[in-house]
Nucleic acid binder design. Structure first.
Lengths: 134, 134
DNA sequence: TGCTCGTTTGCGTCATTGTGCAAATAATAG
DNA sequence: CTATTATTTGCACAATGACGCAAACGAGCA
């Protein structure tokens, strides 16, 4: 149980919102290397791209790319616009950034200063969340 | 050569950094419902918790909880501190928030204006990235 | 030293999901 | 109309990952 005066029966309101933000859907969409490559390529392009264009830069079948794009779209990461017989996907950068920042805010607001005692961890001293190439 | 079919330009430097940020490790750690529940519980607690404590609120075996905690630790989401025969895990809220904001910044900096027509998508009109219950 | 408690790890099983191929669907050109 | 191109979907298979159980490991205590 927690070390504070009360138990878990009192999830602070800020943490409740964090809990509702921590939905697997977004992270599920972003947890696959192929989908991340697609997202990066799409962000690079900075403009809507067709499925075929995106598939050119991936070592996987075009149909698989299509499926990945649909999954990213369903997760709200991409938006799709049909033009003729092509479908152009683009990154919903602003919305995605907003979501990530909302999680970040809730996280910090919930835990303003995690155990500042001695950052001494078993095997994770001063490690940063996986971001840059590791 | 990239998929520069007609008027696509080379990858901008800001997007290159985004690509290096989009590592599967962090998202893989966050894509599982059990791990998200653990993270939420740990954020609520706002203090380091032992494995047994965390396992009490999860319908899964303690050994599985231990594995999940290790995975979250390896992803930089949690930090672990051994005290006696117990191990206390805590959320690395500040670092995690920083990482999420860095991705958000890179994303917006890379794609300042996603699509000219705001969001005219086939099946995703005005949709937000998966965050709240959907 | 032996014992107990807390945690981690090895292993087998089962569900999920990423993948390729082929067929189906949709839209445009001839 | 048919033909062609772009995308999606059905299906089968392989790889990945979550899970439970039991054993091993480590730290404190009698």
């Amino acid at each position: 149980m927690t070390q504070t005066s009360n138990k878990r029966t009192a999830p602070k309101t800020c943490c409740a919102s964090l809990g509702s933000m921590l939905t697997p859907r977004l992270f599920k969409a972003l947890c696959d290397p192929s989908r991340l490559a697609i997202l990066a390529r799409l962000a690079e392009a900075c403009a809507p791209c067709t499925v075929s264009e995106i598939a050119k830069c991936c070592p996987i079948n075009l149909s698989v790319v299509s499926r990945h794009l649909a999954q990213l779209r369903d997760a709200g990461v991409l938006c799709a616009e049909k033009r003729g017989k092509e479908v152009r996907y683009a990154v919903r950068a602003r919305e995605l950034a907003e979501t990530l920042r909302a999680i970040a805010d809730a996280l910090e607001h919930c835990c303003p200063a995690p155990v500042r005692s001695t950052q001494a961890s078993t095997r994770n001293r001063g490690r940063e969340p996986a971001s840059q190439g590791e």
